[in-house]
Nucleic acid binder design. Structure first.
Lengths: 254, 254
DNA sequence: GAAGTCTGATTGTCCGGACAAACTAAGGGC
DNA sequence: GCCCTTAGTTTGTCCGGACAATCAGACTTC
C-alpha cells in the first residue's frame, strides 16, 4: 500500500467565512472533520496548538476550542494536556445513533419496503400504558408492519403511539420510516430506552417472517421520548436473526 | 401519591468552593445533577437565566454555561433560546456506557462469579487478526470464561487480546472484570464497535450454558479501542437469551 | 548509567464583556 | 375577535486575556 500522498508539514488549508450565518466554530469543525475523513489529517498527527491555530484563522482561542471540543465529543480527536490534540487512530466511524430500521437498510443500499398490516386504534394494554405513560385502557394507535428487503421479510414491527401527536397515514408509513414522519411533524426526538434480546419463534411469528417454528429471533423493545420527556412511541420488534444484527459504535464517556 | 414537598419558588441551594481543586463548573454541574436526581429540580421547571445564576454564585457566565452544557450533553437538561433551560421530563437515566457484563450484573445486585476455562496464548486466526489489527498468526492471548449468577451460567465469554499490554492473571480475571483490569493497567478505553445478533445453540454451546441444542442464544462481538486507536480487545460472547438481554439508553445527537 | 530536576510547550479553567438570534407575550391595527 | 407588529427576555456566538495543571524532553546530579 502506498504511503498517503500528503505532506504532513504542509499546514492545513483552513478558512472561515465571516459573512456566513453558520457559526465560525462549526465551519472550522466541519473543515477539520472533512480533513480527517479525507486523510489530510492522518491518524496520530498533532493538530497544532490552539493559540497558533486561532491566530492563523483570525479567530479567538475559545472559538477554536469550541470547534475542537465538538470533534472530541464525536470521538475523532483526543486532547492531551502538555502534548497537543491528536487525531484518533480511527476505525471508529460514528457513535450510536437513534436510527430506524428503514434508515439502516437504506444506508446499506437495500432499498427497503414496508407493508402495513394493521393501522388501528385500540385501548392500551398494561404493558403499553406503562411504556407510554398513559392510563391503561386509553386509546392508542397500533401499527403493525412487515419490513422487506429484496422482497424477503426482514422484520416484524409492532408500534404503539399516543393519539393526537400526528397523522398516521398508512401510505406514508409504507413510503418512509416512522421516525421521519415524527420529525416531519415537528417532534424532536430526544432519547430512547432499548432492550435487545432473543427468543425462539412461535409458529405465527415464524410464518410471518418465513422462518421455521423455534428459529432464533432477535427482539428489540424501544420506548422513544421527545425533548419534553413525553413518550412518543413504544415498539416491539422481531428480526430474523439469520438476516439481521445490530451494529453500533460506543464512545466511552471520559 | 403526595406532591413533592419542594417549594419551586425557593431558589436552589447552590454554592461553590473556590479553594477546592475540583473545577468550579464541575462542582456546579454535580450540584445541579444531584438536585435533579433528588427531585429538588422538578422535570419541566426552568433553571433561571444564566446571567442571574452566575451573579448569584459569584461565577462568570461562561463557567455557568459550561456546567449547564455538560448536563445538556448528558441529556438531563434542554436549552431553548428565548425561553430558558428546562429539566427534561426524565425517565431517562443514563446513556449507553461501555460496560462489562461483570458491571451489569453487579449493578443488578446479582453477585457475579467468573470461571476461567482457558487462559493461553495462540496464533491469531484471520478473524481475530483482522479485529485486532495484527498480522495473522501473531501470538495473542485467548481467554475463555463462564459468567455465573446465582450459581447458574449466564454467558460464555471468549476474548482475544494482543500481547504485551498487561498481565493476564486468571485469579484476577475471576475476581473482577476484564475492563477493570485494563483500566487498572493504565489503559484508557475510548470506543468500541459492537455487533449484537442471535443464533441457535450448537450442542457444545448448549451444554456449556445449560440450554438444549437449538435454544436461542444472544451473541455479541465487540472490539474495544483505547485512546491511541489501538485495538485492545476482541470478544465473542454468547448469552442465554432466556436469562439475559441488553438494556440501554440512547441520546439523539442534536 | 540511572535517577531526579528543571524548563518550555500545550491544554484546562476562568473571567468580563459584547452583539446576534430566537422565542414569548403584550400591544396596536383591522 | 383576530392578526400583525413590537418590545423584552434568554440563550447562542464570539472576543481577548490571565493563570494553573500537566506532559515531554533536556539537563543535572549522584
Amino acid at each position: 500500500m502506498p504511503k498517503p500522498e500528503v505532506d504532513p508539514t504542509a499546514p492545513l488549508r483552513l478558512s472561515v467565512d465571516r459573512s456566513s450565518p453558520v457559526p465560525l466554530y462549526f465551519q472550522l469543525a466541519q473543515q477539520l472533520e472533512a480533513a480527517i475523513e479525507h486523510g489530510t489529517l492522518t491518524p496520530g498527527s498533532l493538530l497544532g496548538n490552539e493559540i497558533e491555530l486561532a491566530g492563523r484563522l483570525g479567530l479567538s482561542r475559545p472559538t477554536v476550542r469550541q470547534a475542537i471540543q465538538s470533534l472530541v465529543d464525536k470521538g475523532l480527536l483526543v486532547r492531551r494536556r502538555g502534548v497537543g490534540t491528536q487525531v484518533v487512530h480511527s476505525q471508529v466511524k460514528r457513535p450510536l445513533e437513534l436510527s430506524s430500521l428503514y434508515d439502516d437498510l437504506e444506508a446499506a443500499g437495500q432499498r427497503p419496503a414496508s407493508q402495513v398490516l394493521v393501522n388501528t386504534l385500540e385501548p392500551a394494554s398494561a404493558e403499553v400504558a406503562a411504556a407510554l405513560g398513559v392510563a391503561e385502557g386509553t386509546e392508542v394507535h397500533r401499527v403493525e408492519r412487515l419490513r422487506l428487503a429484496h422482497g424477503e421479510p426482514m422484520a416484524y414491527l409492532c408500534n404503539h403511539l399516543p393519539t393526537g401527536l400526528f397523522d398516521l397515514d398508512s401510505a406514508q408509513l409504507e413510503a418512509t420510516g416512522l421516525y421521519r414522519l415524527m420529525r416531519a411533524a415537528g417532534i424532536t426526538l430526544h432519547s430512547a430506552r432499548q432492550s435487545v434480546g432473543a427468543r425462539a419463534a412461535t409458529a405465527d411469528e415464524g410464518e410471518r417472517l418465513g422462518e421455521p417454528e423455534g428459529a432464533p429471533l432477535l427482539t428489540m423493545q424501544r420506548t422513544t421520548f421527545d425533548d419534553t420527556g413525553r413518550a412518543v412511541e413504544f415498539g416491539s420488534h422481531t428480526y430474523r436473526a439469520s438476516r439481521y444484527s445490530f451494529e453500533f459504535q460506543l464512545l466511552v464517556r471520559p
